[in-house]
Each structure stands twice: as C-alpha cells, then as structure tokens.
Design a protein around this nucleic acid. Structure first.
Lengths: 153, 153
DNA sequence: GTTGAAATTCCATCAAG
DNA sequence: CTTGATGGAATTTCAAC
C-alpha cells in the first residue's frame, strides 16, 4: 500500500480528479505522456489503493436533498462496545455522508444530508434512541459555497 | 434544470454513484432495462445538471494528506463586499474541500484537508490576513470514520 | 418503451525501437 | 520511456418494431 508517487503520477491523478470520464489518450495528452505508461501507472495506483472508487457528483438539491446538517457530538461514554455500536449506527445510515472522530472536547462531527428538517429530526431521534450521547449540536447549512472531493495535489 | 426523476432514473443514479466506471450494458442489466433508454436518461440528466462531474476517490493518507480540520468561523462583518472577498478566498484555496454558510451563531464551516498541522497553520494565517474574522475554532479529525459523496436515494 | 445493427472510438495488450 | 498495431469492447447513433 506504500507507493512512490512522482510528478507524472500526480499529474495523472489531478487530471482524473477533474474528469474521470476522459479517455486514456486524452489523459496522456494532458499530462504530456503517452498511453502505455499512463495506463501502467493508473493500474499500479489502482492496485495499491491510491485510486479508489469512481463516482459521479449528483446535484443534491435537484434530487430533493435540500437540507444539510453538521452535527457536533459530545459523549461521556468511551468504552469499546459503546463506540462499536455508535460506529455501526453511522455506517448503517446512508444520510450520514461523513463522520470523523475528533481531538478536543467535541468527540465526533457528522455531515448529514437529508430531504428537509423533518427528515433530520427523524434521523436524530433514531440515533439518540440507539446510542447514548451527552450533547448534540446541529449546524444547519444555508448555502453550500464549495464542495469538492479533489485533493490539492 | 427542473426534471422529473422516476424510479428508474433513481436506480440508474444509485448504480452510477456506486461505480461510474461501469459500461452501459452493465448499468442497464443492473437496473433491469436496456441500453438505449438508460443512455437517453443519463444524457437527459447530464444536460439538466442532475448528474455532474465524474471523478475518482483518492486515498488522501497515501498521498500525504494526513490532516483534516473542520473550521468553525464567526464573523462580525456581514457586508456584501466582505462576503465576496471571503468567498473568493475560499474558492481560491484548494485545501478547502467544503465550505458552508450556516444558520445560527456560527457563520461558516469549512473542511480543510492538508498535509499536516503546520500546513494548516499556514492556511489559517493566510486566511485571517486576507479577511477579518471574529472567531475561529478548528476541530482536528483523528479518524475518518466514514466518507461518501453518495446521496441516500 | 424494445431489439438489433452500424460506425466510431476506446481499452488493454503486446511488439519493437 | 516511445510509437504503432492489434482484437475485442464500449460508446453513440439510428432504424424498425
């Protein structure tokens, strides 16, 4: 899983991040190389797990997901089985797009994407009925200013 | 930009979210239809902006991006030109992967992906020297529990 | 909506310089 | 590394049902 990534690799990744639908020929042209080495590098990085899933960015609002919450969670319980249960609850819920364990006094942050505020409440009630949490603060997004998965390579 | 999305469209989107690299034939088989109608629907949704950019998920840690911060920002300035300047600063910085304007006492939340804590500090110093902000809290991610762009269709 | 066929392009590989 | 060639797929379009 440990690979050397050189400047050409980085160029390839940058290009693929921008548009993964391009043909090999196009990618090769953009990065200033040719098909064969580019293809070999892509395969190597795929095998090494550097390049993962290929996906499409969907327009959340056009599809009826008009509400996005960032949820700050404090808990007093830090035992292993509580954590396992909590993690499972997060993994099982598709409306949780991101979940991070934090350093500091806030223990977790979630990004939750739902149709509306009501749907968030349903999610919230279900979550706190499943696992004990000490304190929950929900931040409601009014406007998505920027959203990208691209790394600043 | 306003399109009717039926159950078949949703199935197509779900399939493409999971793996955008599949062939049309495969997608058609998975959703229980055939090539032509699936292709027509994909094109329609692309034109309507429902389907956006096609991209790849990269392994951030393997590429040296080991630090991820959620940044909570309070500001006292709400004039139009301050906001324009602030937005531009966010758009111009590739380490800002997400930026949302919030309801409530916290005005903005950012997700910032950088190589390490030092790189975050460079970002932070640059940002506050460009625009005035009243209060900034940085939450450091210790562990990315979940990360997906898939909508729960 | 479906199936099937067409031209074109692309993928993935391999040989050769 | 490069170019060039290849067989097999996939894309995109179209006609016909």
């Amino acid at each position: 899983m440990d690979v050397r990534i050189d400047e050409l690799d980085r160029k390839i990744l940058r290009t693929m991040q921008r548009d993964a639908g391009q043909s090999l020929d196009e990618i090769a042209k953009v990065v200033g190389s040719s098909k064969t080495p580019v293809w070999n590098r892509i395969r190597k990085m795929r095998d090494a797990g550097v390049i993962g899933q290929q996906t499409v960015m969907l327009n959340a609002e056009a599809l009826g997901f008009e509400a996005c919450f960032f949820v700050l969670i404090r808990t007093s319980e830090h035992e292993a089985d509580w954590q396992a249960k909590f993690l499972k609850a997060l993994m099982d819920r598709p409306e949780v797009q991101e979940a991070h364990r934090l350093a500091g006094d806030i223990d977790y942050i979630l990004k939750v994407r739902v149709q509306n505020a009501r749907a968030y409440d349903v999610f919230y009630q279900a979550l706190i009925s499943e696992v004990r949490v000490f304190n929950v603060t929900a931040l409601l997004s009014m406007e998505e200013i920027k959203s990208t998965v691209a790394l600043p390579l």
